[in-house]
Design a protein around this nucleic acid. Sequence first.
RNA 1: GCCUUGGUAGCUCAGUCGGUAGAGCAGUAGACUGAAAAUCUACGUGUCGGUGGUUCAAUUCCGCCCCAAGGCA
Length: 320
Amino acid sequence: MSKIEKKPLVAAIVGPTATGKTDAAVSLCLALGGEAISMDSMQIYQRLTIGTAKPTPEEMRGVPHHLLSFVPPDTPYTVQEYQRDARAKMTDVLARGNLPVFVGGTGLYLQAVSRPLNFAQAGETSTVRECLQHEAETSGGPEALHCRLASVDPETAARLHVNDIRRVIRALEVYETTGTPMSAGRTEWDADSAEDWAIFALSWPREVLYTRINQRVDIMLQRGLLNEVESLLRSGLSPETQAMRAIGYQEFVAYFQGHCTLEDAVGRVKMNSRRYAKRQMTWFRRDARVQWISLDQYNEPEAVHQAIIGRVRTLQEERQ
RNA sequence: GCCUUGGUAGCUCAGUCGGUAGAGCAGUAGACUGAAAAUCUACGUGUCGGUGGUUCAAUUCCGCCCCAAGGCA
């Protein structure tokens, strides 16, 4: 009997959009006594239902789901909040003796919850941000901002491209509201976590994936995505909010504002979804912990689910 | 049937006063540590519709053919 310290086992189902993550996660939960924790930056929002492909009660099949629809659509939400909320949910699920099953496609959220990344407390950033944004557009442009960052936080400035204004501004905000540079206390990406993570990424060949994405957008429209967007706008929600920048929303906002035809908007939702899926692939390919599941090697979803369940069960047995 | 205008990258098109060609979009790859469905970076060879001719050399000029759009009958 070796006295290996036992870390709790945590599972995650990731991968690009439209691969059947939800279904796989629910099956895993049902088989092994798990609870699902969403890892999706847009499904957190209330009233963004159809366009975010939020799981329906039927799809949940009685399995508890956490971190869905708990933020009002006009409220910003950040990675460090997700880290805090998700780790709290994970702890709860473990305390109940259940298996936490994270499910979603937001790569940064996976890092935040599964790596010991340090986020120090920051103050109110909105006014600072407005100032900096204004500055980027007028006076010195992106170069001036980048220069300024280099003088207070050379390490972060060195790894950010001058044109990546968003990140440059974020780094400056952190410095100005906390007084310490973002690079202070920075953790390595591959730092060990306090849990053992079994991460599965679902993937289709590119051509199949793109066909599925296009079809899914058509289905969302049939389910009433246009009405959903229109009703959000009618209730006074600003198109500038984080929630309305989601794919499937920003494009139809442009349509309702008369900037493009419906056909153009639908085409751009499909295009942006394809690009997003590609970025998701890039993100998960980089993570050495990820076990890839090639869906074209299985005849039916049930076989995929059984394969994942089998692997997790083996891990559970190994640690007993 | 005749006339006109087109046919060049996956798409929309530019261009070569004759020396085998380049933009935008799409696409591909990558980055990502306090907004992430966000944000940013890099990457451009294709029988220049087909076929004959002129020429040292034709995608470019000329002939014929095919296809598309418009006009006339």
